[in-house]
Protein backbone atom coordinates (compact mmCIF):
# COMPACT_ATOMS: atom_id res chain seq x y z
CA UNK A 1 0.00 0.00 0.00
CA UNK A 2 1.20 3.47 -0.91
CA UNK A 3 2.37 5.54 2.05
CA UNK A 4 0.63 8.92 1.89
CA UNK A 5 1.11 12.31 3.49
CA UNK A 6 -2.14 14.22 3.14
CA UNK A 7 -1.54 17.89 2.35
CA UNK A 8 -5.16 18.97 2.53
CA UNK A 9 -7.38 17.71 5.32
CA UNK A 10 -9.45 19.29 8.05
CA UNK A 11 -10.99 18.29 11.34
CA UNK A 12 -13.84 19.82 13.28
CA UNK A 13 -17.53 20.41 12.81
CA UNK A 14 -18.80 21.91 9.56
CA UNK A 15 -22.06 23.64 8.84
CA UNK A 16 -22.88 21.64 5.75
CA UNK A 17 -21.27 18.22 6.10
CA UNK A 18 -21.07 15.72 3.30
CA UNK A 19 -23.42 12.75 3.75
CA UNK A 20 -20.61 10.89 5.52
CA UNK A 21 -20.21 13.71 8.02
CA UNK A 22 -17.16 15.45 9.48
CA UNK A 23 -14.29 14.37 11.73
CA UNK A 24 -14.98 15.70 15.18
CA UNK A 25 -11.67 14.57 16.62
CA UNK A 26 -8.11 13.96 15.50
CA UNK A 27 -8.54 10.26 16.26
CA UNK A 28 -11.51 9.98 13.89
CA UNK A 29 -9.59 11.64 11.08
CA UNK A 30 -6.44 9.60 11.62
CA UNK A 31 -8.42 6.36 11.80
CA UNK A 32 -10.14 7.11 8.51
CA UNK A 33 -6.93 8.14 6.75
CA UNK A 34 -5.07 5.08 7.99
CA UNK A 35 -7.42 2.80 6.08
CA UNK A 36 -6.10 4.34 2.88
CA UNK A 37 -2.45 4.28 3.85
CA UNK A 38 -2.33 7.92 4.92
CA UNK A 39 0.23 7.92 7.71
CA UNK A 40 0.55 11.70 8.11
CA UNK A 41 -1.66 14.69 7.55
CA UNK A 42 -1.10 18.42 7.28
CA UNK A 43 -4.33 19.46 8.89
CA UNK A 44 -6.31 22.62 9.55
CA UNK A 45 -9.38 23.22 11.65
CA UNK A 46 -12.73 23.67 9.93
CA UNK A 47 -13.61 26.59 12.19
CA UNK A 48 -10.57 28.45 10.92
CA UNK A 49 -12.31 28.38 7.58
CA UNK A 50 -15.97 28.54 8.51
CA UNK A 51 -15.75 30.86 11.54
CA UNK A 52 -12.43 32.70 11.87
CA UNK A 53 -8.74 31.74 11.71
CA UNK A 54 -8.17 33.08 15.23
CA UNK A 55 -10.74 30.64 16.56
CA UNK A 56 -9.86 27.63 14.42
CA UNK A 57 -6.07 27.91 14.70
CA UNK A 58 -6.32 27.84 18.50
CA UNK A 59 -8.72 24.91 18.43
CA UNK A 60 -6.38 23.01 16.15
CA UNK A 61 -3.49 23.26 18.57
CA UNK A 62 -5.70 21.77 21.26
CA UNK A 63 -7.24 19.11 19.02
CA UNK A 64 -3.97 17.59 17.81
CA UNK A 65 -1.93 18.06 20.98
CA UNK A 66 -1.77 14.30 21.60
CA UNK A 67 -1.55 13.25 17.96
CA UNK A 68 1.82 12.39 16.43
CA UNK A 69 0.64 11.92 12.86
CA UNK A 70 -1.12 15.24 12.24
CA UNK A 71 0.96 18.36 11.65
CA UNK A 72 -0.70 21.75 12.10
CA UNK A 73 -1.32 24.33 9.40
CA UNK A 74 -2.81 27.70 10.25
CA UNK A 75 -5.10 29.89 8.24
CA UNK A 76 -4.23 33.54 7.75
CA UNK A 77 -6.07 36.77 6.95
CA UNK A 78 -4.97 40.31 6.10
CA UNK A 79 -4.11 42.29 9.20
CA UNK A 80 -5.41 45.73 8.16
CA UNK A 81 -8.75 45.41 9.94
CA UNK A 82 -7.14 44.58 13.25
CA UNK A 83 -8.69 41.13 13.37
CA UNK A 84 -5.40 39.32 12.64
CA UNK A 85 -1.80 39.89 13.74
CA UNK A 86 0.59 41.89 11.59
CA UNK A 87 2.78 39.64 9.40
CA UNK A 88 5.91 39.82 11.55
CA UNK A 89 3.92 39.01 14.67
CA UNK A 90 2.15 36.14 12.93
CA UNK A 91 5.45 34.66 11.82
CA UNK A 92 6.68 34.84 15.41
CA UNK A 93 3.52 33.00 16.51
CA UNK A 94 4.09 30.33 13.87
CA UNK A 95 7.64 29.85 15.07
CA UNK A 96 6.60 29.65 18.72
CA UNK A 97 3.92 27.07 17.95
CA UNK A 98 6.11 25.09 15.56
CA UNK A 99 3.64 25.55 12.71
CA UNK A 100 5.36 25.02 9.38
CA UNK A 101 2.55 25.68 6.90
CA UNK A 102 0.09 28.51 6.34
CA UNK A 103 -3.14 28.47 4.35
CA UNK A 104 -5.19 31.20 2.76
CA UNK A 105 -8.71 31.01 1.33
CA UNK A 106 -8.99 34.42 -0.35
CA UNK A 107 -12.14 33.59 -2.33
CA UNK A 108 -14.00 32.12 0.61
CA UNK A 109 -12.82 34.66 3.18
CA UNK A 110 -13.20 37.62 0.84
CA UNK A 111 -9.85 39.35 0.52
CA UNK A 112 -7.55 40.19 -2.34
CA UNK A 113 -4.01 38.97 -2.76
CA UNK A 114 -2.71 42.20 -4.28
CA UNK A 115 0.49 43.56 -2.78
CA UNK A 116 -1.34 46.51 -1.19
CA UNK A 117 -3.34 43.94 0.81
CA UNK A 118 -1.06 40.94 1.26
CA UNK A 119 2.39 42.01 0.06
CA UNK A 120 3.87 42.33 3.55
CA UNK A 121 2.38 38.99 4.52
CA UNK A 122 3.86 37.19 1.53
CA UNK A 123 7.23 38.85 2.14
CA UNK A 124 7.17 37.71 5.77
CA UNK A 125 6.52 34.10 4.77
CA UNK A 126 8.95 34.02 1.84
CA UNK A 127 11.87 31.71 2.49
CA UNK A 128 10.40 30.71 5.85
CA UNK A 129 7.05 28.96 5.56
CA UNK A 130 5.24 27.45 2.54
CA UNK A 131 1.87 28.93 1.63
CA UNK A 132 -1.09 26.67 0.77
CA UNK A 133 -3.39 28.79 -1.36
CA UNK A 134 -6.92 27.37 -1.64
CA UNK A 135 -8.81 28.52 -4.71
CA UNK A 136 -12.42 28.17 -5.76
CA UNK A 137 -11.64 28.18 -9.46
CA UNK A 138 -8.55 28.67 -11.60
CA UNK A 139 -10.19 31.50 -13.54
CA UNK A 140 -8.37 34.41 -15.17
CA UNK A 141 -8.15 36.73 -12.11
CA UNK A 142 -6.97 33.89 -9.86
CA UNK A 143 -4.39 32.65 -12.35
CA UNK A 144 -3.07 36.20 -12.81
CA UNK A 145 -2.91 36.64 -9.03
CA UNK A 146 -0.93 33.43 -8.66
CA UNK A 147 1.45 34.46 -11.41
CA UNK A 148 1.95 37.92 -9.93
CA UNK A 149 2.51 36.71 -6.35
CA UNK A 150 4.94 33.97 -7.36
CA UNK A 151 6.91 36.40 -9.54
CA UNK A 152 6.99 39.11 -6.88
CA UNK A 153 8.03 36.68 -4.13
CA UNK A 154 10.31 34.10 -5.78
CA UNK A 155 11.38 32.51 -2.51
CA UNK A 156 7.79 32.03 -1.36
CA UNK A 157 6.77 28.41 -1.98
CA UNK A 158 3.12 28.44 -3.08
CA UNK A 159 0.98 25.28 -3.19
CA UNK A 160 -2.28 25.68 -5.10
CA UNK A 161 -5.01 23.63 -3.41
CA UNK A 162 -8.56 22.62 -4.30
CA UNK A 163 -8.05 22.80 -8.06
CA UNK A 164 -10.72 21.27 -10.25
CA UNK A 165 -10.64 19.52 -13.61
CA UNK A 166 -9.96 21.42 -16.84
CA UNK A 167 -6.93 23.36 -15.57
CA UNK A 168 -4.16 22.09 -17.85
CA UNK A 169 -4.14 24.96 -20.32
CA UNK A 170 -3.57 27.49 -17.55
CA UNK A 171 -1.79 25.45 -14.90
CA UNK A 172 0.87 24.08 -17.24
CA UNK A 173 2.44 27.43 -18.20
CA UNK A 174 2.11 28.62 -14.62
CA UNK A 175 3.99 25.59 -13.32
CA UNK A 176 6.61 25.80 -16.08
CA UNK A 177 7.31 29.48 -15.57
CA UNK A 178 7.13 29.59 -11.77
CA UNK A 179 9.61 27.26 -10.05
CA UNK A 180 8.14 28.17 -6.65
CA UNK A 181 4.64 26.98 -7.60
CA UNK A 182 3.34 23.56 -6.48
CA UNK A 183 0.11 21.66 -7.19
CA UNK A 184 -1.97 19.79 -4.63
CA UNK A 185 -3.68 16.93 -6.43
CA UNK A 186 -6.79 16.40 -4.30
CA UNK A 187 -9.20 17.97 -6.76
CA UNK A 188 -7.21 17.31 -9.94
CA UNK A 189 -9.66 14.94 -11.60
CA UNK A 190 -8.43 15.32 -15.16
CA UNK A 191 -8.09 12.24 -17.34
CA UNK A 192 -4.44 11.15 -16.95
CA UNK A 193 -3.80 14.49 -15.28
CA UNK A 194 -1.09 13.42 -12.87
CA UNK A 195 0.70 11.62 -15.67
CA UNK A 196 0.46 14.68 -17.90
CA UNK A 197 1.73 17.10 -15.29
CA UNK A 198 4.54 14.75 -14.32
CA UNK A 199 5.67 14.71 -17.94
CA UNK A 200 5.03 18.34 -18.80
CA UNK A 201 6.35 19.90 -15.60
CA UNK A 202 7.88 17.18 -13.46
CA UNK A 203 6.59 15.10 -10.58
CA UNK A 204 8.60 16.95 -7.96
CA UNK A 205 6.13 19.78 -7.37
CA UNK A 206 2.91 17.82 -6.90
CA UNK A 207 1.67 16.87 -3.44
CA UNK A 208 -1.14 14.51 -2.56
CA UNK A 209 -4.21 15.87 -0.78
CA UNK A 210 -7.61 14.46 0.09
CA UNK A 211 -9.88 17.42 0.78
CA UNK A 212 -11.31 15.52 3.72
CA UNK A 213 -13.91 15.72 5.18
CA UNK A 214 -15.82 17.00 2.16
CA UNK A 215 -14.50 14.66 -0.50
CA UNK A 216 -14.18 10.86 -0.53
CA UNK A 217 -10.54 9.87 -0.07
CA UNK A 218 -10.97 6.96 -2.47
CA UNK A 219 -11.16 9.35 -5.39
CA UNK A 220 -7.83 11.19 -5.17
CA UNK A 221 -6.24 7.99 -3.91
CA UNK A 222 -7.27 6.14 -7.07
CA UNK A 223 -6.07 9.04 -9.24
CA UNK A 224 -2.59 8.57 -7.85
CA UNK A 225 -2.65 4.79 -7.42
CA UNK A 226 -3.64 4.21 -11.07
CA UNK A 227 -1.55 7.03 -12.58
CA UNK A 228 0.85 5.75 -15.22
CA UNK A 229 3.98 7.16 -13.59
CA UNK A 230 7.10 5.53 -12.19
CA UNK A 231 7.14 4.14 -8.68
CA UNK A 232 9.56 6.87 -7.64
CA UNK A 233 7.29 9.58 -9.01
CA UNK A 234 4.26 8.07 -7.28
CA UNK A 235 6.07 7.92 -3.94
CA UNK A 236 7.29 11.48 -4.37
CA UNK A 237 3.78 12.79 -4.99
CA UNK A 238 2.34 10.60 -2.25
CA UNK A 239 4.57 11.87 0.53
CA UNK A 240 8.18 12.73 -0.26
CA UNK A 241 7.51 16.08 -1.96
CA UNK A 242 5.46 17.36 0.95
CA UNK A 243 8.15 16.22 3.39
CA UNK A 244 10.73 18.11 1.34
CA UNK A 245 8.55 21.20 1.16
CA UNK A 246 7.90 21.31 4.89
CA UNK A 247 11.60 20.75 5.54
CA UNK A 248 12.22 24.10 3.83
CA UNK A 249 10.51 25.86 6.74
CA UNK A 250 12.87 27.94 8.82
CA UNK A 251 12.06 26.07 12.01
Amino acid sequence: MLDLFDANCALGMVGRPSPAGAFLSAAQLVDHQARFGVSRGLVYHTLALEEHPAVGNALLTEAIADCDTLQPSWLALPHHTGEFPAPATFVDELRSAGVRAVRIFPDHQRFLTDDWVMGDFFAALAGRVPLFWHIERLNAPTARDIHRVCCAHPTLQVVICDVDKMINRTMTPLMRQLPNLWLETGGYRTHRGIEFMATAVGHDRMVFGSKLPWQALGQPHAELAYADVSGAARRAIAADNLERLLAMAAW
Binding site: K165, R189, R192, A216, G218, Q219, A222, Y226, A227
Partner: peptide, 18 residues
Protein backbone atom coordinates in the same frame (compact mmCIF):
# COMPACT_ATOMS: atom_id res chain seq x y z
CA UNK B 1 -17.65 10.33 -18.15
CA UNK B 2 -14.01 9.75 -19.04
CA UNK B 3 -11.95 11.28 -20.58
CA UNK B 4 -13.96 14.45 -20.02
CA UNK B 5 -13.57 13.50 -16.39
CA UNK B 6 -11.36 10.75 -15.01
CA UNK B 7 -12.32 7.08 -14.94
CA UNK B 8 -9.97 6.35 -12.05
CA UNK B 9 -11.59 9.08 -9.96
CA UNK B 10 -15.02 7.44 -10.10
CA UNK B 11 -13.60 3.95 -9.90
CA UNK B 12 -12.03 4.87 -6.57
CA UNK B 13 -15.27 6.44 -5.44
CA UNK B 14 -17.23 3.21 -5.89
CA UNK B 15 -14.45 0.76 -5.00
CA UNK B 16 -13.88 2.42 -1.63
CA UNK B 17 -17.52 3.19 -0.89
CA UNK B 18 -18.98 2.04 2.40
Amino acid sequence: DYPVLSQTWQLGNVAHAD
